[in-house]
């Protein structure tokens, strides 16, 4: 009986290990960003820029997302500093006029519609509320993409996060609903799934 219990428990623990330890490592693959980017240089004392200086709103109110190359080239037509990343950026992207193909950490599925404008302009939410300290980072975090769904870990969150066992991260539907519920706002299906 003891032997049987031990074998059963071994199987049970093996599953737990595979599920909680191996799955997160195998489910996601890491993809490289086109170049290293330092937010802190731009937003800190040296650059003293605000988020919206680069991540701006268009005239029609829609959010432009990651700035286009022409925005960056306004300052970086030539290298302003001595870092290798900036020189690489100017040589490989600015000079040839090649748009960097950034991987977007917060890209939502196509069936989810998230407008920045009402959240930032009307609700006065700080960028950090959803994006954390991203604006103060010195290097870009790893871009981890789900091998099955194709979405970023930063959108889906960590598997254990749902149970409070890990720092959750992610920007999932539950997070949107929770925040709306907390603030007494509507959260019908068609608000986001248009």
């Amino acid at each position: 009986m003891l032997r049987a219990t031990l074998i059963f428990t071994a199987g049970f623990l093996a599953s737990l290990g595979a599920g909680w330890l191996a799955l997160p490592k195998t489910l996601y693959r890491t993809e490289a960003q086109p170049l290293s980017f330092n937010h802190q240089v731009h937003t800190g004392d040296k650059g003293n820029m605000a988020c919206e200086d680069c991540h701006s709103f268009r005239e029609n109110g829609s959010f432009a997302g990651i700035p286009k190359l022409e925005s960056c080239a306004g300052c970086h037509a030539e290298a302003m500093g001595e870092t290798a990343a900036e020189k690489q950026f100017v040589a490989n992207f600015v000079k040839p006029g090649r748009e960097p193909q950034w991987k977007v950490y917060a890209r939502q599925p196509d069936n989810a519609f998230f407008p920045h404008s009402p959240h930032v302009k009307a609700a006065k939410l700080k960028c950090e509320k959803c994006h954390g300290d991203h604006g103060k980072s010195t290097t870009l975090p790893l871009y981890q993409v789900n091998r099955i769904s194709g979405y970023s870990l930063d959108v889906m969150g960590r598997p254990a996060g749902r149970w409070g066992l890990q720092r959750a991260g992610g920007m999932r539907m539950d997070d949107c609903v929770a925040c709306h519920r907390q603030n007494g706002l509507s959260h019908s299906c068609l608000d986001c799934h248009k």
Binding site: F8, G11, S15, A18, P159, A160
Partner: peptide
């Protein structure tokens, strides 16, 4: 079979 049974039971308690 016992190991498999344990693994199957444990699977339900993982995110897999």
């Amino acid at each position: 079979l016992k190991f498999g049974g344990g693994a199957a039971a444990g699977l339900a308690f993982t995110p897999i």
